[in-house]
Design a protein around this nucleic acid. Sequence first.
DNA 1: AGCTTGTTCAACCAATTGGTTGACAACGAC
DNA 2: GTCGTTGTCAACCAATTGGTTGAACAAGCT
Lengths: 118, 118
Amino acid sequence: MAADPLSRVFAALADPTRRDMVARLTAGDATVNELAAPYSVTVQAVSKHLKVLAEAGLVSRTRDAQRRPVHLEAEVLDLMTAWIERYRREAEERYRRLDRVLAAMPDDVEPVAPTEGM
Amino acid sequence: MAADPLSRVFAALADPTRRDMVARLTAGDATVNELAAPYSVTVQAVSKHLKVLAEAGLVSRTRDAQRRPVHLEAEVLDLMTAWIERYRREAEERYRRLDRVLAAMPDDVEPVAPTEGM
DNA sequence: AGCTTGTTCAACCAATTGGTTGACAACGAC
DNA sequence: GTCGTTGTCAACCAATTGGTTGAACAAGCT
């Protein structure tokens, strides 16, 4: 899965169950059993999902007697947002420039070597 | 990998090679061979990566003689941003409320049943 | 000490992934 | 038509994934 941090975060959220758990954790910390309740899988499977989220830095665990409450670390989401927004912006800028070029181009001009390296 | 659209987009970007290809495509459309050049993998492997990106809706292919230029569809990124921002915002709001409660709490009060269901 | 609750570890399984090689289709050029 | 280019399809492989069951560990309760 390519161990770099960004890949881990994307991979962690590429699963609906894990996304759902993250969503639930925005409402407050929860134990493994609480998190497992809504799903039809075993508690061990949920524990594995949490391990993936933890390795991506999305959640942390604290100890409270024999419970291990799960806490959402929302800042990691910024890593992704930064990546996404950067390239979305670049793509948009390129479209804008292209639009400008097309608008400035007289109607009868044959378009050449479409935009390579522009 | 759980076939829903959001999962597909996250999974597609959970690979550094594919993220790199997306980044390169913000500079303009490119053919499979052009995209393959910088990497040490076969062109077939790159073709597979592109298939993943296409199934996530991140790129589209047009036909230009025997070339198949790849075009970035940046709007799909908004799907992710929407998801991420929603939950990041919710998490932040919760922290703010919690801060307010803690600030309003007299120093000598024993904290009870920490925040469950709040 | 012994039982119960909460959580994880270990082994296993089927399905998927990212990569390979080799064959093949589609098209432009000679 | 035949040749080189561009790209995909098919089969295969090792590694990973998401799930299972069963055992083990950890901490409180009686």
